[in-house]
Amino acid sequence: MATLQEELEARRKLDTMLADFERQTSTETTNPGEIFRGVINSTPGLREQYERAIKDGHLVGIEAETDPRFNGSYDGDSRKMRLSVGQLNEADPSNDPHDVRDAVNFIRYTAGHEIDHALHREENARLTEHFRTQVAAIAAGPSPHDFTGPVKEFNEGARVSEARAEIAGFNTVAAQLKHDNPKATVAELYEVDGGVSNYMDSDDKTPPHVTVDPGLHIKPDLQLDAAKSLEAMAKTFYDDHKGIPRATSIGHSGRYTVKRPLRRPQIQVALSRRSGSTWPLSALRSRCRQTSRTPAQRSQINPRRRLSGQLHPAPTTLVTKITSCWKRSEIACEVLSKAWASRGTTRANA
């Protein structure tokens, strides 16, 4: 248990990080760092998690996300989090109040997802190191080198990590709603959104009947039961969307990034007309709220999450069969590429 001194020190360090982030990102017209500081300070449960990550040595800084494909990422090697200033600026006080409210909840979701990766940094590092060790051992043996086993094991670990983090993002929004309104209902959780509606359905009745996706277990406090919901979340968030690169990715050096899907069919056309851009929520809200969604519609993209594009593919000569399993991981590409460069023929089948 942390001592009072440790808690105060973590609080001080977080305030310093937030101030540094504000200085790094402020311009003459925008101040995304100030917006993020406001989100953190208005979300007690989220701030507590950030302070815990700092106290345990998993978070040492917050920076602007430099990759336009992503709204948030965490680098386990540098122990730094990166956040999109574009997403943060959507919560600028000068915007429509309803848009600001929704934008703040999307920021909470992203921040909750990423801080979960930070809190599990050591576990993720062990996963990567175990993978490197396995690959090195196979590469040192006789050719051909079959990395199928290590790739599958690594991918399964990444799958669990991403599903767990996605549940954490969901629960960040749910916890804040209950904090603001202890009598809040599942229907109200659907309305505040922030990303939680990706895993919920609403009919067109008055009042609407809202349910969570099959396999997800919502508790009386509106948070998902992490243990009971993990497999269903992994199937929806990771498997159904090919994981990396469309939904999430594990980048170089243990860098985790988030892009979550949306099942609102009306938004697909709007996004296709402005490829890679973020639509103002005010232009979409009336078209989003009244449609019940089906599992077949889950390949859509959230309007607050830019189209992710493609990550760098592995060299085609690296494997005899390139599978979606390891295309999901740039770490796998990096490790296997090094093995290929030094040991010749490799094989990774799924």
Score class of each variant (00 low, 15 high):
N71M: 01
R293E: 07
A283K: 10
V60T: 15
G254P: 12
W340D: 05
K228A: 12
N181K: 11
T346F: 08
V173E: 02
K228D: 11
D204E: 14
C288K: 02
T172I: 06
E334K: 07
T291A: 08
P220L: 05
H217L: 09
E191T: 12
A125H: 08
A247N: 15
Q297D: 14
N124W: 06
H130K: 15
E231V: 15
E129P: 13
R79K: 13
A175F: 01
F147I: 04
D99H: 03
G157C: 04
K55C: 11
S337G: 15
A111P: 09
G72A: 05
I35S: 04
P207V: 12
G169P: 15
A125E: 12
Q176K: 09
R164L: 05
M17R: 02
P68R: 02
L127E: 10
S94F: 08
A234V: 13
L281V: 13
T317Y: 04
E188W: 02
I167G: 06
L46N: 09
A118N: 09
V104H: 02
L222A: 06
Y256F: 12
R69D: 00
Y238P: 14
A296F: 10
G112F: 08
G72P: 01
A184F: 03
T172E: 12
H58L: 04
D20K: 00
P44A: 03
Q268K: 12
R79I: 07
R101P: 00
A137N: 05
W326Q: 14
L230N: 14
S277A: 07
V151S: 09
I35P: 11
G344L: 01
E122N: 13
Q223Y: 04
I322A: 07
P144C: 13
I244G: 12
T320N: 07
T43L: 03
S249K: 00
D56E: 13
H58T: 14
T206N: 11
T128L: 10
A247S: 14
D102W: 09
D75N: 15
D180A: 05
L222E: 10
D75Y: 02
G45K: 01
I107L: 09
P313I: 12
F170I: 11
E65T: 08
P32R: 06
S342F: 01
E28C: 00
Y50P: 14
R305Q: 02
V335P: 07
H217C: 01
P303F: 05
T29F: 01
D77F: 13
A232Y: 08
H241R: 12
T185W: 01
L307F: 04
R159L: 12
V39N: 02
L271Y: 05
S161Q: 10
A187G: 04
S253E: 10
A227P: 08
E123S: 12
Q223V: 14
S42C: 00
F70G: 00
K235Y: 05
I167P: 07
I322E: 09
S42T: 08
D102I: 10
K13F: 02
G276A: 10
T320Q: 10
R69W: 02
I218D: 00
T110L: 04
R37G: 03
A140N: 09
L281R: 12
T236R: 15
N124M: 12
S73L: 00
V335G: 11
R285I: 09
K259M: 01
S342D: 15
T248G: 03
L4K: 13
M200C: 04
L222H: 10
D20F: 00
F237G: 11
E9D: 08
R328A: 13
E231M: 06
Q87V: 14
N124S: 15
Q297E: 15
